[in-house]
Design a protein around this nucleic acid. Sequence first.
DNA 1: ACAATGCTTCGGCTATCATCGAACTATGAA
DNA 2: TTCATAGTTCGATGATAGCCGAAGCATTGT
Lengths: 223, 223
Amino acid sequence: MVASLVGDPARANMLTALMTGRALTATELAHQAGITPQTASSHLAKLDAGGLIEQEKQGRHRYYRLADPDVAGVLEGLAGLAARAGHMRVRTGPKDPALRRARVCYDHLAGDLGVQMLDSMKRQKLIRQHKHDIELTAQGQRFLTKALQIDAETLAHPRRPVCKACLDWSERRHHLAGTLGAALMTRFTELKWAARDATPGSRIVNFSRNGETRFAALFGDAA
Amino acid sequence: MVASLVGDPARANMLTALMTGRALTATELAHQAGITPQTASSHLAKLDAGGLIEQEKQGRHRYYRLADPDVAGVLEGLAGLAARAGHMRVRTGPKDPALRRARVCYDHLAGDLGVQMLDSMKRQKLIRQHKHDIELTAQGQRFLTKALQIDAETLAHPRRPVCKACLDWSERRHHLAGTLGAALMTRFTELKWAARDATPGSRIVNFSRNGETRFAALFGDAA
DNA sequence: ACAATGCTTCGGCTATCATCGAACTATGAA
DNA sequence: TTCATAGTTCGATGATAGCCGAAGCATTGT
């Protein structure tokens, strides 16, 4: 039963930690849950068997992430019920509206605008989706060159995919990561469409008046 | 934590029984879950404290129902995740195969054969379904008279419906309850098609060789 | 090759919690 | 009143499952 998997406190803590959408290593998750790596390993195996999480081997690390946005949805539903009962669990997303709007996830754009961008790119068939993996189309390559002077050839990297769908923490939907996601963020900064907030350590991204307009022209709801 | 409440098999069974939207008494729920009333009482108190169900006192009965449609939504979401994992419930229902096959639920037939019977009756248009309620059709009345010498007129009862869909414990699908369900079970016994197991307190129903054949002729998969 | 790191498997300990028998309360019926 | 039914509380029991120490792979780095 799935519910019993989520029911255990240690596992619930790990899942909550994964709600950020980022993939975390087994040791990091053990730390988050306050248990030893052995115990965490056992829990992670069960969560994996139950289809709640997926693992990805990378070197001597194993990265774990939520299997699916649907999982995040159900977890959010459970949290909602728990909140109503008084057992407040206040770990839901960022409260700061600016952080929800646009922020950096490592080196790429996340938040409402990040999700909106990936949606738009799929709608314009710049990006195609195969099950969980996404890839740039030929049409997408032309678009990048023409609209943003980004050469898709230079994006190849031995260890990192060009396109990767990353589960957005606040939106619970995917935004674009990978070298392309990073390149786009860099380009937006270079063009002075956007800039990281001045506050040290802040992940907020502020768009300029002009930048917001240009961004909307390329990736707006209408585009 | 809410999830741990749903995680327990017995509680999950009770909640599943309540998914029909109807309110059930504590004893009925205990029966559905295959546990004693004492244990059920403990579980119901926890579910109530967790805000998943509500109770309503009425005479010496206590009726329990899901607290909210949202609760039903979350439960459905969990079921969806469970189904996807192919991780279909392992620890539910009775272990005894005979009990799964045919048993009494109060005074009517339950288990595989009970579910099969209701399915067949719907397929033959002897019973019609309106949302959650079911009723006997004119065609069904004729069938009962002709095939089983049951007069539908005599089934009317001030406090009990003639037809009632009862969620089957082991099959998780509906079987036929109500005065008609009881009358059928009685008739099967009278005709010596079936008999309750000799063991005191046993709910198992044993069909005779002949009874199984006759039953299948009326309510078999082909019928 | 060797050491270090990340993670898993194994075995035993422990605590939690579901379960049931027995006894108690409350409502309704005779 | 007395009996029967519905439901609860209490106490004891037992099994499940989480937990950690120790040891075993696997991968990376020197």
